[in-house]
């Protein structure tokens, strides 16, 4: 992998990390909104929607962190 490819991948990883934080925060807010619901169906809908957002956001943060560590190590090695 050359330097340009590493820079591009690092750019994508940083972007994904920012997106992940945003989506995960939204997931937390939706889960919190459960306390304002009135019926069980509403409560479960908020919970499922919030968990999906949290899962996607968390996954993106984890993956991008991993990529950044790997690419930084590779950059130092090269």
């Amino acid at each position: 992998m050359n330097k340009i490819e590493i820079t591009n991948k690092l750019k994508t990883a940083k972007i994904n990390q920012a997106l992940g934080v945003f989506i995960a925060l939204f997931g937390l807010i939706v889960i919190f909104a459960m306390i304002f619901t009135e019926t069980f169906v509403q409560q479960m809908t908020d919970l499922v929607a919030g968990l999906i957002l949290l899962g996607i956001g968390g996954g993106m943060i984890w993956k991008s962190k991993l990529t950044q560590i790997k690419l930084n190590a590779q950059e130092r090695f090269e």
Partner: peptide, 8 residues
């Protein structure tokens, strides 16, 4: 929609 999801 329930509260939370209306906003979403």
């Amino acid at each position: 929609l329930p509260p939370g999801l209306v906003g979403l």
